[in-house]
Design a protein around this nucleic acid. Structure first.
Length: 268
DNA sequence: CCAGACGTTGTT
DNA sequence: GTCTGG
DNA sequence: CCAGACGTTGTT
DNA sequence: GTCTGG
């Protein structure tokens, strides 16, 4: 499931420096980190080794209006037309992901797809492999770039006003696409519909934010919704994340685990 | 007309 | 806000 | 995070 | 009370 992510923004800069990333990338990240330093709550609720979408944490987002800032929007898109907080809560549990194939059609996504695309910045994310047919046992996998640079996911955002309280809530969803062949092996519960998050190639990240003025612009955006090559990804099993015995939001959530009692797919 | 849905991954 | 189903 | 299940033998 | 699934 594409509901589990890591957002270690401070580490992204350190890794980029350690691995000798381009100067432009380092500059880009350090500029964003300056914004982060201003946020007092930064260490409390923004930096996660592991977080579930259902806890609706804030994710780092880049929008077309403010391409130089890293903003923080609540995960789980609430369409602008939602009238009450009960519906808002219900919908936001169903809009953690948006199928890339239908974002321009679905009532919940089409307005945002046209006018409010964004990049969701992650350090990595998780998928669950089913070790048996019914998914009684699930093995989590961690996925990140081999070069450990930040992952820029295609996203959509909205601004929703709670009429009961006047509160303005900015929310975001992450676009999904067909899985590449490696991630299809991990996302194995339904062979006819393997999914992965829609990673936008680093050098094309701002293309995703381009304004749509005509049909060919729209076609261009649609062409960015596609599986990302597995050759650039590290994919490996990690320890249980959820539940009482789960690791939770700790550095160990990123550590590779050897499963001795069971055969699981492995990648180089 | 008007109430109810509006969604995903993975199930029923 | 807009569509669908009853 | 939080709502919902928490079970069996035997049947569909 | 505690675990699971969304």
């Amino acid at each position: 499931m594409c509901y589990d992510v890591a957002t270690n923004y401070k580490r992204q800069l350190k890794e980029a420096e350690r691995l000798g990333a381009d100067k432009s990338e380092i500059d880009f990240l350090s500029k964003k980190l300056k914004e982060l330093e201003k946020l007092k709550r930064y260490n409390e609720s923004i930096e996660h080794y592991y977080t579930s979408g259902f806890s609706h944490q804030k994710l780092g987002v880049i929008t077309a209006d403010k391409p130089d800032e890293l903003q923080f929007f609540q995960w789980g898109l609430i369409p602008f037309w939602v009238k009450d907080s009960k519906t808002a809560q219900k919908l936001s549990n169903q809009t953690l992901n948006a199928r890339g194939e239908t974002i321009f059609e679905k009532p919940s996504f089409r307005a945002a797809a046209k006018k409010r695309r964004c990049l969701v910045v992650l350090t990595g994310y998780y998928e669950h492999y089913w070790a048996d047919a019914k998914g009684k046992r699930k093995i989590p996998y961690y996925i990140e770039f081999k070069n450990k640079l930040p992952m820029y996911m295609g996203g959509l955002w909205e601004e929703w006003v709670d009429k009961e309280t006047g509160e303005v809530v900015k929310t975001v969803t992450i676009v999904t696409t067909e899985a590449n062949s490696a991630l299809a092996k991990v996302h194995n519960r339904d062979e006819s519909n393997p999914r992965m998050l829609n990673i936008i190639p680093n050098e094309m990240k701002f293309d995703w934010l381009h304004e749509i003025q005509n049909d060919s612009d729209k076609k261009f955006i649609e062409s960015l919704i596609r599986p990302y090559p597995e050759e650039e990804l590290t994919i490996y099993p990690v320890g249980q994340l959820r539940g009482k015995n789960g690791l939770g939001d700790v550095p160990e959530a990123h550590e590779k685990v050897e499963y001795e009692d069971i055969e699981v797919p492995l990648f180089d």
